[in-house]
Design a protein around this nucleic acid. Structure first.
Lengths: 337, 337
DNA sequence: CTGAAAGCGCTTACAG
DNA sequence: CTGAAAGCGCTTACAG
């Protein structure tokens, strides 16, 4: 990289002159027109780019703390909005003067994110949706960068998790109380850590409650509305489809719902459905029919992440903390009380 | 702010020792345990935070270019997802090694954003959804920071705008061709620059086509599903409600649709609706009934912003450019062909 | 009108 | 085991 020195040498002037000219203070300082031109040309020739660190250092500007939010660049980008609003909302509420950096990464490749190790770039990092491999990496990672895990648990980092055991149990019990003996399951084909845990929890509760979920009525599809369309089609092709559906994703449920209504299948009369509400809550609220969900408190979880980040940054010796935010079972038209 | 010098003074050692200890290289360098403790204590006492600029400068790390994306912190946060995915998608596609910073601001207060003037913090800024006042500010702003306006036009900056004149005209013509003489209008109460322009364009086309939009059938509501609920209720309370509805926001349309279906009003039999699709396209696609929209090409617009940003950063003398991306009229159940 | 020099806060060879 | 010194790239008084 060319520095101001190189430019000065090429233009045959001092670095001071270069600095002045390049910062538009040439006229003000009455630098000769010819000199200015030489400097400009030299800068262009060398492709000179000022080094911002040097500038900042010189200006001794107090830097704002920077919080990096890591989120994988895949379908779950849809879940980002409610988290992002939560993060920003809390930042505004606390009047916390910081920069929020959105860093996207690829699952299983969190170890390629240099900045998690070169800990000086950020004041804190919030990491969302790491895969199993990413979690293993995080477990072994040595870094001074304070890390907050979003909806994942690791003893060594701060964590903010949703607590959905009891609403999930209630959901299953509600279905059996309504007389359902069998249920169908829609779930995202990419089985991430948490959805995996949720799934086994669900299967466990179902067994406990005597709700049978047969192998051939478990549909694994892409976590998108299109995926939901496919799940619904498979469901409709079953010989004796169960009248209850559990969907691990609200996005899938919305896609499925569009097919059901097109095929004249009415909820809750013909089918009853409960989904995990992971995305924007208004999606399931204003769906038609509206969806019963176990709503993940993304917004509140995000707020907690910021709260923790702020305390880490502002309070020396802020102790490691693990927070749990309860999910809520919200019953609507697709499976009323 | 305490510096490493202050810590060194308090601990009674040199700055080198402080640096070593604080960077965890104490053991490695065999710094006496007692010395280390003194340093640690001193640092804690003074609340020492390393200056990242100094660190970066020292390390002479080539900095990644930083692109700041400014978006107002209000309801339109819902529109962020599709833009954000577009931005990230293009960054990935181009293998463009940069940092994307999401900066939220308050409308009418863009002038309070220091970093737009202190141009050395970012390599480029993409500004979304500025208000009239913000636009005036931008018009007068002097900065060396390259700025790209998202869906706003100003001669002096790079711009990427949606072009929705022709789909809008087609939408209006479709309604009149179907025999509609009157239409109802739902629009967000916060009339931002562009929605304002769209609105007057719409009114103009409607007049041209002989589609009457009466004063009492224009409903201004919050730009949210809840706002749509209110608009729908007002619509239902009209004596002779027009059978055509134009909604300036898809979010409002979704809220309204939920009320219509609850009240047994069927689209397109009882009402026909066309909305501006501003948010995530799958929302209107998978709504029930699915929504006819004039779809703003947010994703593509975002891609163009990144493309421009990259060229600005990498190509010296990249000329000012103004791009227009056409919107598309997509007809679905709420107002079929 | 232009240059030499100091200094922003840090890290890292290099002495001792 | 610890300190003095150089240097990262820039800007800004201060001379001349």
């Amino acid at each position: 990289m060319a520095t101001i020195k190189d430019v000065a040498a090429l233009a045959g002037v001092s670095t001071a002159t270069v600095s002045l000219v390049l910062n538009g203070r040439g006229q003000e300082m009455k630098v000769a027109e010819a000199t200015q031109q030489r400097v400009l040309t030299a800068a262009k020739t060398l492709g000179y780019k000022p080094n911002t660190s040097a500038r900042k250092l010189q200006a001794s500007k107090a830097e704002k703390p920077t919080i990096a939010f890591y989120w994988p660049m895949d379908l779950r980008i849809n879940y980002l909005t409610s988290i992002l609003t939560g993060l920003r909302a809390e930042i505004e509420k606390l009047h916390f003067d910081c920069e929020l950096l959105i860093c996207t990464y690829h699952n299983d490749h969190l170890d390629e994110e240099q900045d998690l190790m070169d800990s000086y770039r950020y004041s804190a990092a919030i990491i969302g949706a790491p895969s199993e491999a990413d979690m293993n990496y995080l477990q072994t990672l040595k870094t001074r960068l304070p890390i907050i895990l979003f909806n994942r648990y690791l003893e060594k980092y701060h964590t903010v998790c949703s607590q959905d055991e009891s609403p999930l149990r209630n959901a299953v019990n509600l279905l059996t109380a309504k007389g359902h003996m069998r249920a169908c399951l829609f779930h995202p084909d990419s089985l991430y850590t948490v959805s995996g845990k949720r799934l086994s929890m669900l299967l466990h509760f179902a067994e406990e409650a005597g709700l049978s979920i047969e192998r051939n009525s478990i549909f694994s599809v892409e976590d998108s509305c299109d995926g939901g369309v496919i799940a619904a089609r498979r469901y409709l092709s079953l010989d004796h489809p169960p009248r209850a559906i559990l969907s691990m994703s609200d996005t899938i449920a919305i896609g499925a719902s569009s097919i059901f209504s097109r095929k004249g299948l009415v909820m809750p009369t013909d089918v009853e459905l409960i989904a995990f509400g992971i995305g924007d809550p208004s999606l399931s609220h204003f769906a038609n029919p509206s969806l019963s969900v176990i709503e993940m408190p993304s917004h509140e979880m995000a707020e907690n992440c910021i709260d923790i980040a702020r305390q880490i940054i502002q309070t020396p010796d802020f102790p490691l903390c693990h927070r749990q935010i309860p999910s809520k079972l919200i019953l609507r038209e697709s499976c009323p009380e």
